[in-house]
Design a protein around this nucleic acid. Structure first.
Lengths: 333, 333
DNA sequence: ACGCTGGGTGTTAGCGCTAACATGCGATCG
DNA sequence: CGATCGCATGTTAGCGCTAACACCCAGCGT
């Protein structure tokens, strides 16, 4: 900086003023400084600035299991929104959502003096770890529920699941079966709640046995096999809601293999709307989540907290996309 | 830090020594300081340390189109490897791979004084932008080729494509058609090269017309439609290599719709091995890439450059996974 | 007895920047 | 016409830390 000042024939403070866009600098001085900056290829040192201002203009993002489509998209949304707001993003991708790993990551962010932290995960251990922590900077949760006091944004899982269930009941299905996500996932529970309450509201029987998956296509396949066996055993199962598209894909594969036709024999609805969903066999009816929007609201929320505002954002809405994996119930023989 | 020093009854320098694990500190002093640190919840200020040491122990990661499975996985591998080596990761996810966006991102990293930069993208503009840049810190490219001097790691695309092509020819197919990726992708070109050279080596005819996609299932679907039309028009097309699994999915959907059976009428091979690939209809034969390993080697490479070493890592190997989307050529009627 | 070594600790300076105050000067006003 | 204002700029201090050096005091050899 002093080199620039010397070359432009001004003090370092004036250079600082130019760099930070202060108003009270004479236009010609400003120009002279800017030329010197360009000539010398000068870049201000963020660390030094952070030291004196106490702000790094960096957000910490801690996440688990980013290998799923949803979290990855949400991360993109977060990063873009943060960058647009002039913040850098430092990420920590945890292998598993243990409290210890979570604490470690947050600790590192605190040492880095990030201005705010966004935690992105749908698992209970992560949520619990978060609850126990009290970092000196705002910490908001994205898609992690259960925080009574901790600020959070999420997707309106319940309405999404209700939409899907209603669609299937509307097609004349007696009831809807559900292949749920992991028990320790808040997100999965939201979908179960929505599905169950819609069935109840419609007076449809609520299937006792709940099928569990772990979000992977492989677990969906297993669920599909189990379901097919029950259908061949004479059970009246004609409509299935799976908790995400990957599991729906596995389920579809299993039902196909067992000679069941979609949607003639069984209607299937997914959740997420992967870009690939229209190309499943058959094209998948599913519930779309706007992950990018979720990320954006997450950033909006930390930023608000950083300014001391107490924002309570609405959950991100979902939408049902009807494609070819759902059809009218066949008449019982 | 001075609070800790006061509480422990030592100088701030001794606290610094304890924090940084210097050898010459008396055990009981060390313990006293550690207790004070714990009591006060003290975290060293990384910015201040960076200012004096000149090192932030942070790596910059710039990437484009992370919404694809491959880049996302690679990013995880990178982040984990970096964290294991004691580095934080600052990310910048670009909307598109323009030279300007790339320059901006790198500039920000330079201002942040990251110790090294990893660029992750397979597009030519990105590669070109990289070539034009000369940041004051080591910059390595992951999966971006074409760098004569710029250090890079990549996946051995060519061998992967050859493996797939050989597999199809071995099943008795007269030749193999290829649905390639975007023309400006280094990765896509590597696969084309491998496919073409294997055909040549086997003395098989090289189809003139190359089908182009953009990695999406939707573009694969379009290619599938085109292919189906040509098959119905009497062309002898029995084996297709698609440049990734998503496009293979779209292709599969299109061929199905046009009444072609897989693999009886057409054999299809993908590339990537998505976790969902075994659940396609039919389960997809594909070429696996080890993205996590790619990320790991990327970090290894920057770290080496930061130490002034001149590492030239091997490309990451690929493996063919044979599932049910490929079968023997049917006899021409 | 003397210097010498080396481990344990303290003191000082400075990394690059911005906040706060100081200064100088032309324009404005009673 | 001097007091006053506001703009453009300079000066100083200090953010929290580590490197470099200074210092003190045992233990040792001669």
């Amino acid at each position: 900086m002093s080199d620039v000042a010397a070359l432009a024939g001004v003090s370092h403070q004036t250079v600082s003023r130019v760099v930070n866009g202060h108003p009270n600098v004479a236009p010609q001085t400003r120009e002279r400084v800017e030329r010197a900056i360009a000539e010398l290829g000068y870049r201000p040192n963020i660390a030094a600035r952070a030291l004196v201002t106490g702000s790094t203009r960096t957000l910490g993002l801690v996440t688990v299991k980013i290998d799923q489509y949803g979290p990855a998209q949400t991360m993109i949304g977060l990063e873009n929104a943060a960058r647009a707001a002039g913040y850098s993003v430092s990420v920590s991708i945890l292998d598993d959502a243990t409290a210890a790993a979570m604490r470690d990551a947050i600790d590192t962010f605190v040492a880095q003096r990030v201005d705010g932290i966004v935690a992105l995960s749908t698992y209970d251990d992560a949520a619990e770890a978060l609850r126990a922590l009290d970092p000196p900077v705002p910490l908001v949760a994205v898609q992690v529920g259960g925080g009574e006091d901790r600020p959070a944004v999420g997707v309106d899982q319940e309405t999404g699941a209700r939409l899907a269930t209603r669609h299937l009941l509307g097609l004349g299905h007696r009831t809807v079966h559900h292949v749920a996500g992991p028990a320790d996932s808040q997100e999965a529970r939201g979908r179960i709640d929505g599905w169950r309450s819609e069935l109840r509201a419609a007076g449809a029987p609520v299937p006792e046995e709940l099928l569990r998956g772990d979000w992977t296509a492989s677990s969906g396949y297993l669920a599909g096999k189990a379901l097919a066996a029950r259908i061949h055993g004479g059970e009246d199962i004609t409509a299935v809601l799976t908790a995400n598209d990957q599991m729906a894909l596995g389920l579809l594969a299993a039902l196909h293999q067992c000679g069941l036709r979609i949607p003639e024999d069984v209607s299937v609805v997914g959740f997420d709307d992967l870009p690939e969903a229209p190309y499943f066999t058959p094209p998948l009816t599913t519930v779309r989540q706007d992950f990018a929007e979720l990320g954006r609201r997450g950033v909006q929320l930390v930023l608000a907290r950083m300014n001391g505002q107490d924002l309570h954002p609405e959950p991100v809405p979902t939408a049902l996309l009807v494609r070819s994996s759902t059809g009218p119930a066949r008449v019982r023989t």
